[in-house]
Design a protein around this nucleic acid. Structure first.
Lengths: 171, 171
DNA sequence: GCCATAAAGCAACGATCTTTGCTTTGATGA
DNA sequence: TCATCAAAGCAAAGATCGTTGCTTTATGGC
């Protein structure tokens, strides 16, 4: 029941991010629109719930190659591939539009920060000189998201360039 | 007439970025809704026009202090103050939501790029070693917008820190 | 000054969303 | 098993949006 609703929202976000209504969701989920109107304040409230479930997803494994440069390159590449998927782009847009950033955006960023901290800590234990985790967020993650949200190109070499840039800060 | 419509849209964006309709705009502007339905394809088309007019605004003067670090610091500070204004934040959100990024987002980014090029060129003529204009966009502008869009804090020192970071790339 | 064309207003219609009262289903505990 | 209460379905009414045909106004050329 509830999962049917969540998947229905997910499908609709994947198809048309513009103008998703309760009746649409209800039809897909095979429930009565009234149920949705009664349970959630509005469509954004439901979307927030779905986005939180979809994006706060489990800990992706963090690369551990033995060199921070390799780790970051792989990591940035994975993220770049992930957030440029049309479906994911629409999720991001929908999130921003629905103002669910305060809740979800922060949790996503925090997850990325934790991953960065992990890689940086390992590198430091190996004796490498590293940028801070916050710098990695600012100079690798932020530009990637910026390009996605504003529909700027994210070619394969771009993530690599960002990693190269942030590493020069450590020297 | 046309300006009345534009200002009406601006007001509405400033108040409620969610669900702006032609009848709302028409009422504010003192015109008939039909006029809007006939002239613009949909609300997004009108929003795009207004956003373009509001954001492509004239060439803000670019700082010219005689040192790139000073220039960038002042510039980033101005931008940070500008894009954190509640009204501007709502504009950005509305833009992203309405998918008018492809048109407007690019033009805004291009304007920033031109400004960065100007400052970098001047610095190079003075003999300074500088990052590229593209790097300034990636590592100063992008993190600022990222923080705004995802509702992360943009305290005064943040812009300064970004500038410091990007300058270390040039050495 | 008059006519032609384009733009804006008006009004009515249809479609869709949203709300609300009431009924039905289903799960829980005595 | 039955009683009870919460949650879901149903149906009708109300509100808003979006569309379209027609009328009115204004602007420019002759």
């Amino acid at each position: 029941m509830l999962t049917a609703i969540h998947t229905a929202v997910g499908e609709l976000v994947g198809e048309r991010a513009d103008k998703i209504t309760f009746p649409m969701i209800a039809e897909r989920a095979g429930v009565n629109p009234t149920t949705l109107y009664r349970r959630w304040k509005d469509v954004n409230a439901l979307m927030e719930e779905v986005a939180a479930a979809a994006l706060t997803r489990d800990g992706d494994p963090v690369p551990d190659t033995g060199s921070l440069e390799q780790d970051l390159t792989q990591w940035a590449d994975i993220i770049a591939r992930d957030i440029t998927r049309p479906m994911r782009v629409r999720y991001l847009r929908a999130m921003v539009a629905a103002r669910i950033d305060i809740v979800v955006g922060c949790s996503v960023t925090e997850a990325r920060l934790e991953q960065a901290v992990l890689m940086v800590d390992r590198a430091r234990e190996r004796g490498e000189t590293t940028p801070t985790a916050a710098q990695i967020l600012d100079h690798v993650i932020a530009p990637l998201y910026h390009h996605v949200v504003f529909a700027l190109p994210v070619d394969p070499g771009y993530a690599r360039r960002l990693v190269r840039d942030v590493l020069t800060m450590a020297r």
